[in-house]
C-alpha cells in the first residue's frame, strides 16, 4: 500500500468537511437576512437561549468573579497591590471570562440540544417532511436559531458581566474587608466602553458559532441514535474549540486596533 494514501485521504477529507461547512454557513447566513421570517419560532429560540440560560450563565460568572477576586488578592497582596482587585475583576470579567465562560456554558446547553433536536428530526425524516411541505428547513429551523444565538448571547453576557463583577465585590467586601464604596468607584473608573464592547462582540461571535455548529452537526447527522449522539458531541466539542480560537483572534484584533 502507498504510504501517502492515508495522508492524502485525511487532507481530502478535511478539505471536504471545510467546504461543506463553508457552504452551510453561507446558506444559513443568506437565509437569515432574506424573508420570509418565522417570528414565532425566533421568539421561542430567543427565550430558550436568552432567558433559560440565565441561571447557568449567572451562576458561572458569579463564582468566576468570586474566585477571580480571591486569586487576585492572593497574587497582588504579595507586592501590596490589593487595591487593584476591583480593576482586575472588572477587566477580567468583561473582556475575557464573561464571554468565554458564557459561550462555553451555552455551547453545552444550547449547542447540544440543537444538534440532538435537529439530528432526531433528520433521522426521523422530519426535515424531509418540511421540504415536501414547501417549507425551507434553513428558514424554518436554522435561521431562527442562528439569529437568536447572535442576538441573545451579548445580552446574556452583559447580565453575566454585572453578576461577575458583583461576585468580586462580595468576596472583596465581605471576606477581604474592602470598602464597598471604593470598590464600586474603582470599578467604574477603570472600565472603558471598549472593554465591555469587545466582550459583547465576542459574545455575538460565540453565539453564532454555538448555534451554527449545533445546526450544522444536527442537520447533517445520519444513522439513527448513534449518529445523533455523535452529532451532539461534535457540536459541543467543535463549538468549544472554535470559541477559544476566536476568543484569541478577537482579543488580538481589539488590542492592535
Amino acid at each position: 500500500m502507498n504510504p501517502f494514501q492515508p495522508v492524502g485521504k485525511a487532507v481530502l477529507g478535511f478539505l471536504e468537511a471545510t467546504g461543506k461547512l463553508a457552504l452551510f454557513t453561507f446558506m444559513a447566513v443568506s437565509h437569515c437576512v432574506r424573508p420570509p421570517f418565522y417570528y414565532r419560532l425566533l421568539l421561542r429560540q430567543m427565550i430558550d437561549i436568552g432567558y433559560y440560560s440565565l441561571p447557568v450563565v449567572g451562576m458561572t460568572t458569579l463564582f468566576a468573579g468570586m474566585a477571580l477576586g480571591l486569586q487576585t488578592y492572593a497574587g497582588f497582596s504579595r507586592f501590596s497591590a490589593e487595591d487593584a482587585i476591583a480593576k482586575v475583576v472588572a477587566l477580567g470579567i468583561t473582556r475575557e471570562l464573561g464571554p468565554v465562560l458564557a459561550g462555553l456554558m451555552v455551547a453545552g446547553r444550547i449547542g447540544a440540544a440543537m444538534a440532538a433536536e435537529l439530528g432526531t428530526m433528520r433521522v426521523t425524516e422530519q426535515i424531509d417532511a418540511l421540504d415536501t411541505l414547501s417549507t425551507n428547513p434553513f428558514k424554518y429551523l436554522i435561521a431562527p436559531r442562528i439569529i437568536a444565538g447572535l442576538t441573545m448571547l451579548p445580552l446574556l453576557v452583559f447580565v453575566g458581566d454585572i453578576i461577575g463583577i458583583f461576585g468580586g465585590y462580595i468576596v472583596s467586601v465581605y471576606k477581604l474587608g474592602f470598602n464597598p464604596g471604593v470598590y464600586i468607584s474603582q470599578t467604574f473608573k477603570v472600565l472603558e466602553f471598549i472593554d465591555v464592547f469587545s466582550g459583547l462582540v465576542k459574545a455575538g461571535v460565540f453565539g453564532f458559532i454555538v448555534t451554527l455548529m449545533g445546526c450544522y452537526n444536527g442537520y447533517n447527522s445520519q444513522g439513527g441514535a448513534q449518529g445523533v449522539g455523535a452529532a451532539t458531541t461534535n457540536a459541543v466539542v467543535s463549538a468549544s474549540i472554535l470559541i477559544l480560537i476566536f476568543n484569541y483572534v478577537i482579543t488580538e484584533l481589539f488590542l492592535t486596533a
Partner: peptide, 18 residues
Amino acid sequence: ERINSKFGMLFQGAALFD
C-alpha cells in the same frame, strides 16, 4: 417549492413534527 406544493407525502415513520 412551487412543484412541491403539488405534492403530498406520507412518510414511512409518519415523520410528524413532535
